[in-house]
């Protein structure tokens, strides 16, 4: 039964036009910047790789958010999880080495996500309010953990693995993007679990009626989002060779914008991991191109806001059809 549901859903998604809007928009903006900035180093391999690397933490969080939003929930606490996971990884790493440091960061993410999930799925509290509360709570914890002090990371292997390292000439952050998107896309589109996430976002009562364990799926998407935010925290720590309580603070809205531009519906049922990747790259592309155009900061903010608004309008019009 669930298998049939999955195949039906993927048939519906295969013709979903909202997923093409973002790709077209992305290509248009890419071409636009390439022409406008042809002498400004925009179209160099280094600069384009920079964009992918700069957006890796956003992409990773966006994957989690696609699952959460598609299931009809939301997670506002991801930014605060990033800071806690990065700080914990940096602190544990000093005493016990990098594998345990990384594990501690990820575990913190999953644990916080599971707490969010428990409150949402089993106490039946709205995820918006639960994660609004944990967002503030965790921001306080992140400040308290090291008394506002930054924690440097001097472990070269950790910094290479999660930051500036390379494997066969490919930057590790690019590999993280590829690996997490591939895995996320596969689970979301090709597995029974992915179909369940879609189903409960479409209609929880119907999903329950066909035997899907709605509470368990809700719990799991929140935990998954925590895991993704935890990984994002570790990637930030590797990139900066250190952790700080403000990491991730401003990422929530960027992640939501990336996911929505990428064709995921804010109120559940429809989502796209590939779209989220493109949405995230689009955010990075805009930051990069507008800076290279030599615009003042105020101009950058205005132009970026207008382009995101246009992208969301197009995507939502398509999604609503």
């Amino acid at each position: 039964m669930a298998g049939r549901l999955a195949s039906q859903l993927s048939a519906v998604r295969a013709v979903d036009p909202s997923r093409y809007v973002v790709y077209v928009g992305f290509v248009l903006i890419l071409v636009g910047f390439s022409i406008a900035l042809k002498d400004d180093g925009f179209l160099t391999v280094r600069n384009l790789l920079n964009i992918v690397q700069q957006t890796t933490p956003i992409t990773v969080m966006a994957i989690g958010m696609v699952f959460v939003l598609t299931a009809g929930e939301i997670d506002l606490s991801i930014g605060s999880i990033v800071a806690i996971s990065a700080l914990l990884a940096a602190m544990v790493l000093r005493q016990y080495g990098w594998p345990l440091g990384a594990a501690a960061g990820l575990a913190a993410g999953v644990a916080i996500g599971a707490i969010n999930g428990g409150l949402v799925a089993y106490l039946r509290l709205p995820s918006f309010l639960v994660t609004l509360a944990t967002m503030g709570l965790l921001a306080g914890v992140a400040r308290w953990l090291t008394d506002l002090q930054s924690v440097p990371i001097t472990n070269d292997l950790f910094n290479a693995l999660f930051g500036a390292g390379k494997l066969f000439g490919v930057p590790s952050l690019v590999l993280w993007t590829l690996a997490t998107v591939a895995l996320g896309h596969f689970v979301f589109q090709e597995t029974r679990y992915g179909a369940h996430v879609h189903a409960i976002g479409d209609s929880a009562p119907s999903a329950r009626a066909v035997g899907i364990k709605v509470d368990r799926v809700r719990f799991s998407v929140m935990a998954l989002s925590g895991l993704c935010a935890g990984l994002a925290g570790i990637l930030y720590a590797g990139r900066l060779h250190g952790a700080r309580y403000t990491l991730g603070e401003t990422d929530l809205l960027t992640v939501i914008a990336a996911v929505i531009v990428g064709g995921t519906r804010l109120n559940g049922g429809i989502g796209s991991v590939m779209g989220a990747l493109i949405g995230s790259l689009l955010m990075g592309l805009l930051n990069n191109g507008l800076i290279l155009m030599g615009l003042s900061v105020s101009e950058q903010l205005m132009v970026r806001g207008l382009i995101i608004l246009a992208a969301i309008t197009l995507t939502l019009r398509e999604t609503a059809r």
């Binding site: 400004d40 180093g41 925009f42 160099t44 280094r46 600069n47 920079n50 690397q53 700069q54 933490p57 930030y236 990139r239 900066l240 700080r244 403000t246 990491l247 991730g248 603070e249 401003t250 990075g284 930051n287 990069n288 800076i291 290279l292």
Partner: peptide
């Protein structure tokens, strides 16, 4: 915007020029 990670991205982007 007081974000160390954003400042890193900013400097990387700037260096393209």
């Amino acid at each position: 915007g007081f974000d160390a990670a954003k400042q890193k991205s900013d400097v990387e982007t700037i260096m393209a020029k």
